[in-house]
Design a protein around this nucleic acid. Structure first.
Length: 227
DNA sequence: AATTACGTCAACCGCCACCAC
DNA sequence: AGTGGTGGCGGTTGACGTAAT
């Protein structure tokens, strides 16, 4: 049960993983996911890395409720394009396809229920499976801005567990570090790696070096944890 | 206060398209 | 032109939080 953990990790991402992923995406861009997955030493698939980045770590993401304006947009675009979520998401800055998809699901379910009610049709107890949750899933600490309720699963960094360390702060640190470090990390909001070919090429030596890059030596991570 | 039902959201899965070889 | 690898997309699941009872 322990040894074979070496395969591929699944489930919720730890903050360590998040920080690591952000770091490597900063280095190599948000395209070569398989490469990033390997080089970073994360025991995740490229797909998983991409998903985490796109849906959660991307600096341009908005947080919080869908605004009425966004809602109107979603409705409009959905009537136009149907379930082309990624396409719809592209028209709504800061929102991901997943977010919109989720929103639409609950929105439509509500609508359907209301219509059924209005039509006098009895509601079949559908909904998601009853779940009695025991799990060790970590909280959405970025959303809440807090770490309370952290049930020390996996190998979460102790120091991190004692500190509130949001993605905002991570990005702040990245911005700070870019001024002082030689990593040439550009502002995350204006990345365009596709135009910078040099960032894409890493020779063996470099990648080996990166493989062994100690976690706690990430400038932006260390900076904040150690205060 | 305890239990149940429901809502929200992160993450996985499978399929498909694209690209490099 | 064919093939394998990778990324992107949409659908779905399941865990957690919270409102309702």
């Amino acid at each position: 049960m322990m040894e074979k953990e070496e395969a591929m990790r699944k489930g919720p991402w730890t903050e360590e993983e998040d920080v690591q992923l952000v770091f490597y995406v900063n280095l190599f861009g948000d395209r070569r996911w398989d490469f990033i997955a390997k080089v970073s030493g994360l025991k995740r698939t490229g797909k998983s890395c991409r998903l985490r980045w796109v849906n959660y770590l991307h600096p341009g993401l908005k947080r919080g409720k869908i605004t009425p304006h966004e809602e109107r947009l979603v409705l409009q675009l959905h009537s136009k394009w149907g379930n082309r979520w990624s396409r719809i998401a592209r028209k709504i800055p800061g929102r991901t396809d997943n977010e919109i998809k989720n929103y639409w699901r609950t929105h439509m379910r509500k609508k359907a229920q209301e219509q059924k009610k209005a039509a006098g049709i009895p509601q079949s107890s559908s909904s998601s499976s009853s779940c009695s949750s025991t799990a060790t899933k970590g909280p959405s600490f970025y959303d809440t801005g807090g770490m309370e309720g952290f049930s020390g699963d996996n190998n979460k960094c102790k120091a991190a567990a004692e500190e509130v360390y949001s993605m905002d702060e991570i990005w702040k640190d990245i911005e700070l570090s870019e001024e002082t470090s030689n990593l040439a990390i550009t502002s995350p909001l204006v990345w365009d790696f596709t135009t910078n070919e040099s960032l894409w090429s890493v020779d063996d030596q470099e990648s080996k070096m990166l493989m062994t890059y100690p976690y706690d030596s990430f400038p932006f991570y260390n900076h904040n944890i150690t205060g």
